[in-house]
Lab assay of single mutants.
Amino acid sequence: IDVRFTVNGLDVTVRVRTEEIAERVKELAKNGVDWREIQRIAEELNK
């Protein structure tokens, strides 16, 4: 599942395995978490 969001004007796409992880990623993006941090968290959750 590809999750797309915009952080500080940057369009970011993170690929995740499940809808649940996708929701977590969207939540982080909404809360203004840095995209590199979101990427790292997504990689952890995908394991």
Rank of each mutant, 00 (worst) to 15 (best):
Thr13Gly: 05
Gly9Cys: 06
Ile38Gln: 00
Asp11Phe: 13
Val25Asp: 00
Leu28Trp: 05
Glu37Cys: 06
Glu37Arg: 04
Thr18Arg: 02
Ala29Gln: 07
Ile21Asp: 07
Trp35Gly: 06
Glu19Val: 13
Trp35Gln: 04
Thr13Tyr: 12
Leu10Thr: 12
Lys47Glu: 14
Asn31Asp: 12
Val7Met: 10
Glu19Ile: 11
Glu27Leu: 12
Arg15Gln: 10
Arg4Thr: 14
Glu23Leu: 12
Asp34Ile: 07
Ala29Arg: 05
Glu27Trp: 13
Val3His: 02
Ala22Thr: 01
Lys30His: 11
Glu20Ser: 10
Ile38Tyr: 01
Gln39Glu: 10
Asn31Ile: 11
Ala29Ile: 15
Trp35Arg: 04
Ala42Phe: 04
Asn8Leu: 07
Leu45Glu: 04
Ala42Asn: 01
Glu19Phe: 10
Lys30Ser: 12
Arg24Tyr: 14
Arg40Gly: 05
Thr13His: 10
Glu23Cys: 05
Ala42Leu: 09
Ala22Trp: 04
Phe5Ile: 15
Arg17Ala: 15
Val33His: 08
Asn31Ala: 14
Phe5Lys: 00
Asn46Glu: 04
Lys26Val: 09
Ala22His: 03
Trp35Met: 10
Lys47Pro: 03
Ala29Pro: 01
Gly32Glu: 06
Glu23Val: 10
Val12Gln: 05
Glu44Thr: 07
Lys47Cys: 11
Glu20Trp: 14
Lys47His: 14
Trp35Ala: 09
Glu44Pro: 00
Arg36Ala: 15
Gly9Trp: 03
Glu43Arg: 07
Ala22Lys: 05
Leu28Arg: 01
Arg15Phe: 14
Leu45Trp: 11
Ile1Asp: 03
Leu10Gly: 06
Asp34Gln: 08
Val12Gly: 03
Leu45Asp: 03
Trp35His: 08
Val25Asn: 00
Ala22Gly: 09
Ile1Trp: 15
Leu10Arg: 12
Ile1Thr: 06
Glu23Thr: 11
Val25Tyr: 01
Thr6Ser: 12
Val14Gly: 00
Lys26His: 08
Ile41Asp: 01
Val16Met: 02
Arg4Ile: 15
Val16Phe: 03
Ala42Val: 15
Ile1Glu: 03
Arg17Leu: 15
Glu19Pro: 13
Leu45Ser: 03
Gln39Pro: 02
Thr13Arg: 06
Ile21Gln: 06
Leu45Asn: 02
Thr6Asn: 13
Val12Asp: 01
Val7Glu: 05
Glu20Gly: 08
Asn46Tyr: 04
Val16Asn: 00
Leu45Pro: 01
Ala42Cys: 05
Leu45Ala: 06
Leu28Gln: 02
Trp35Asp: 02
Ile38Arg: 00
Ile21Asn: 03
Phe5Pro: 00
Asp2Trp: 12
Leu45Phe: 06
Gly9Thr: 04
Ala42Ile: 12
Val25Lys: 00
Gly9Asn: 06
Val14Pro: 00
Glu23Ala: 12
Gly9Met: 04
Leu10Lys: 14
Glu27Thr: 09
Glu37Asp: 11
Ala22Asn: 01
Lys26Phe: 09
Val33Ser: 06
Val33Pro: 01
Arg40Asp: 07
Glu44Lys: 06
Asp11Lys: 11
Glu37Pro: 00
Ala29Phe: 15
Asn31Tyr: 09
Glu19Gln: 14
Ile1Ala: 04
Asp34His: 13
Val25Pro: 00
Glu23Trp: 10
Asp11Arg: 10
Ile38Asp: 00
Gln39His: 08
Asn8Tyr: 05
Leu45Thr: 02
Leu28Asp: 01
Val33Phe: 09
Val16Lys: 00
Asn31Trp: 10
Glu44Ser: 05
Val16Tyr: 01
Asp2Asn: 11
Asn31Phe: 09
Glu19Lys: 12
Val33Gly: 04
Leu28Phe: 06
Glu44Cys: 09
Val14Lys: 00
Asn31Pro: 02
Asn46Gly: 05
Val3Trp: 02
Val33Lys: 06
Val16Cys: 14
Lys47Met: 15
Val3Tyr: 04
Leu45Met: 12
Val33Trp: 10
Val3Arg: 01
Val12Glu: 03
Arg4Tyr: 13
Glu23Met: 12
Leu45Gln: 03
Thr13Ile: 15
Val7Ala: 09
Ile1Lys: 04
Lys47Trp: 13
Lys26Gly: 04
Asn31Gly: 08
Lys47Gln: 14
Asp2Phe: 12
Asp2Lys: 10
Lys30Gln: 12
Val7Lys: 03
Ala42Gly: 02
Glu43Asp: 14
Gln39Val: 15
Ile41Val: 08
Lys47Thr: 11
Asp11Asn: 12
Leu10His: 14
Gly32Met: 08
Ile41Asn: 02
Gly9Pro: 00
Glu37Ser: 07
Ile1Arg: 06
Ala22Pro: 00
Gly9Phe: 04
Thr13Glu: 07
Asp11Val: 15
Asn31Arg: 13
Gly9Leu: 03
Val33Arg: 06
Val16Glu: 00
Glu19Thr: 10
Ile1Val: 08
Glu37His: 04
Glu19His: 13
Leu10Ala: 10
Gln39Asp: 04
Asp2Thr: 13
Lys47Asp: 12
Phe5Thr: 03
Val14His: 01
Gln39Ile: 15
Asp11His: 13
Val33Ala: 08
